[in-house]
């Protein structure tokens, strides 16, 4: 790809990646959503996090990997327990990263 095409590509990707984030705030901020829609939107966060967690643990490289060789799954269990027990992002991250480092280096 030529340098000009690369710049065009960057500008194009910029537009299509920024508009969906910015437009809802620009367009919808002046409206009061109906109660039912608000409730529906309140479930978007747990749904998105459920999906992101599932993908990052069970499809870490982009393909679904449900096997005992999936290191991400083995790091998931202690991290989840620490998250439930401590309710601390710091400790969850610390435990998750350390266990993953151990799995990478010693398994």
């Amino acid at each position: 790809m030529s340098s000009t095409s690369i710049w065009l590509m960057i500008i194009g990707v910029s537009l299509v990646s920024l508009l969906p984030r910015i437009l809802p705030v620009v367009l919808f901020s002046r409206y009061e959503f109906p109660e039912l829609l608000k409730r529906w939107l309140s479930f978007v966060a747990p749904a998105v996090l459920g999906a992101l967690t599932a993908l990052s643990v069970l499809a870490p490289e982009g393909d679904i990997d449900i096997s005992i060789y999936n290191k991400y799954f083995w790091a998931f269990i202690p991290t989840l327990l620490v998250a439930i027990k401590t309710k601390s992002l710091f400790y969850s991250l610390l435990v998750g990263i350390v266990i993953m480092a151990l799995l990478h280096n010693f398994v």
Binding site: A75, T79, S92, L93
Partner: peptide, 11 residues
């Protein structure tokens, strides 16, 4: 595992 750990905790 930083981002997966963050997702897990926020979940």
């Amino acid at each position: 595992f930083a981002l997966p750990a963050m997702y897990i905790c926020l979940l």
